[in-house]
Design a protein around this nucleic acid. Structure first.
Length: 563
RNA sequence: UGGGGAAUCGUUCAAUGGUAGGACAACGGACUCUGACUCCGUUUAUUAAGGUUCGAAUCCUUAUUCCCCAGCCA
């Protein structure tokens, strides 16, 4: 990614780095890493971390490694590795040849453990999981030392080797760091650093039956890669003393420094892996790339751009306060980006038929329309106009309120890019009494001009030609949850799913120009919002996802939600 | 309850002993062939109480509130 694409910024982590650079710590080197576990898809919260780690590397001419933190084979898979790589690339970041796997370090990490045993700093413990828990103590009481704590180095070495050789059942023994069972920090009470797990690993297959724990593997992986700043989230603050203890015992010279920041929370969604997995597994959504999901792949399918996501990550900043970011900020960022780059188009979501009585039966005109009102470089396109049109149902009211400036009995309105038309009469369905058709007349003088008599026509509505438009499916998305913080309540978050988070409209009409629009291309449907061509599109029958609505000050007045 | 963190507009981020500022949101208004965009304007904050100081969001003291930790998850 080029320098220009990076949003440079300042925060408490960058302050630390700049201080270090001043004193030439780490010989002026800046090395970070993004270390996801490949057991799920990455989401907008990960994107914050990606932007932070890769952004810092770019800002200080350093490096950022991509490292798959795959030390627990349960749930990890190549599918997730591939999705993570795809998503980070799409976000616009590059790690060159520095793609690493913690699993590639298993042998080295094993040797580090042997070293720890030899120096008397680790022992094989044969307590059961329950016993370990019981003996760990509580917040207020110290733990008890394991009866196996003082095994000889020789016995430990032998046992650990036999653990590796597969002589024992899962859970029969663990390797524990010998630290302090009385530590007020529970993390330091002789933490388990290796466990036996007879689970095939997606990369090392059945080569290993013991796997290092996060606390042991992560800091050593950082050290092996020469990481200078190991940036992680707040919940690892308690683990930092252990991080420093392990590195202090095993690594000489320059050591990585762990710095913690607050993870992102976003209103009206959930960002915990556990909850996201539940949404997918129990079919509350249609997969990881469901456009309602806060996953990178979901947002991509929805129509978000990498630029918008990066802007958002820059806007929210980095600090140590717990936060709940208003999703309105995310929406603002995508509108800002798409406003600049999305060509305009017209689409009628809920059609109402309009006949222009004084327009000749077989006449057809082509109007040249700007693709972007502020950017002429985006060119023009031709839009067909004819006697029968569709307009939005919401753009006609029988008994409109005062400030409504669209169509109604006795009213005039401007058809966007076309003529001013005037209401003449309506046709009702005999049975339902519903208005099914409008008859209007047009003013031929108003094609590219205001009415000759100087009268004001305040309203402008969008439309398509009935004959020359293409049927489309449009999927309207709303927030996945109906409360701000579904993750916080004691109640099951599933109870707060928004039942109206997806509305599928199958009778829409879009202008002919979009008949073969390619997947992932974004448009602004004027007066409606930004839309993105979904991958479910088939030739000639486009499917659009609504990325986000336009800001709508009329909706604020009426309280109505959308079209 | 022991330990580790954090408290600043509605939401967020800043101000590093010297004018509390930005963004989003909200609310007015201007403009407009998108009730969009853009532009102009307005409202709103230092958790509390003491102290140090010419001067405190910042330093000290005492409270209060919230988050994290008792996985052989990360």
């Amino acid at each position: 990614m080029t320098q220009a694409m990076i949003l440079f910024s300042s925060d408490f982590i960058r302050d630390i780095i700049e201080d270090d650079l001043q004193t030439n710590k780490n010989e002026g080197r800046v090395a970070t890493r993004f270390p996801p576990e490949p057991n799920g898809y990455i989401h907008i919260g990960h994107a914050k971390s990606v932007c932070l780690n890769f952004g810092i590397a770019a800002q200080y001419q350093g490096t950022c490694n991509l490292r798959l933190d795959d030390t627990d084979p349960l749930g990890e898979s190549m599918e997730f590795v591939e999705s993570i790589i795809r998503d980070i690339r799409w976000l616009g970041f590059d790690w060159g040849d520095r793609l690493f796997y913690a699993s590639d370090y298993f042998e080295k990490i094993y040797q580090f453990a042997v070293e720890l045993i030899k120096s008397g700093n680790a022992y094989v413990c044969s307590l059961s999981p329950d016993e370990v828990r019981e003996q760990r103590g509580t917040f207020t009481e110290p733990g008890k030392e394991s009866p196996y704590r003082n095994r000889s180095v020789e016995e430990n070495l032998d046992m650990f080797q036999r653990m590796r050789a597969g002589e024992f059942a899962d859970g029969a023994h663990t390797l524990r760091a010998k630290i302090d069972m009385a530590s007020p920090n529970i993390v330091m009470r002789d933490p388990v650093i290796y466990r036996i797990k007879r689970e095939p690993h997606y990369r090392t297959a059945t080569k290993w039956v013991i796997y290092p724990m996060y606390d042991f593997a992560h800091c050593l992986s950082d050290a092996l890669e020469g990481i200078t700043y190991s940036i992680c989230t707040l919940e690892f603050e308690n683990n930092r003393p252990l991080y420093d203890w392990i590195v202090g015992k095993l690594i000489t010279g320059l050591r990585p420094r762990q710095i913690e920041f607050a993870r992102l929370n976003l209103s009206y969604t959930v960002l915990s892996k556990r909850r996201l997995i539940e949404l997918v597994k129990k079919d509350y959504v249609q997969g990881w790339d469901d456009p309602r999901m806060p996953t990178v792949t979901g947002m991509r399918r929805r129509g978000y751009t990498p630029e918008a996501i990066r802007k958002f990550c820059a806007e929210i900043g980095v600090a140590k306060n717990d936060n709940l970011i208003d999703v309105a900020l995310l929406e603002h960022c995508v509108r800002e980006d798409l406003n600049d780059r999305a060509p305009r188009a017209m689409c009628v979501l809920r059609p109402l038929r309009v006949v222009i009585d004084n327009y000749p039966e077989n006449q057809m005109e082509q109007f040249e329309c700007a693709n972007h009102p502020q950017n002429p470089e985006m060119g023009t396109r031709k839009i067909p106009f004819s006697r029968v049109l569709y307009i939005e149902r919401d753009d006609f009211m029988e008994n409109p309120p005062k400030k409504y400036h669209r169509l109604g009995p006795g009213r005039e309105v401007r058809l966007r890019n076309a003529y001013v038309i005037k209401y003449e009469s309506m046709v009702r369905d005999d049975r339902t009494d519903e208005v099914i058709e409008l008859h209007c007349t047009y003013d031929p003088q108003t094609r590219n001009a205001s009415p000759a008599d100087g009268r004001k026509v305040p309203g402008v509505i969008h439309w398509v030609s009935a004959q020359q438009s293409v049927p489309a499916e449009v999927r309207l998305y709303d927030r996945l949850f109906s409360i701000e913080d579904p993750g916080s309540e004691g109640e099951d978050f599933i109870n707060h799913l928004n039942p109206n988070s997806l509305e599928i409209l199958t009778t829409c009409y879009v202008e002919t120009n979009l008949k073969n629009a390619g997947p992932e291309s974004q448009y602004q449907f004027e007066r409606l919002g930004y839309f993105c061509v979904d991958m479910d599109t088939v030739a000639g029958k486009p499917v659009f996802n609504r990325v986000v609505q336009l800001r709508d000050s009329w909706a604020k007045i009426t309280g109505s939600k959308d079209y």
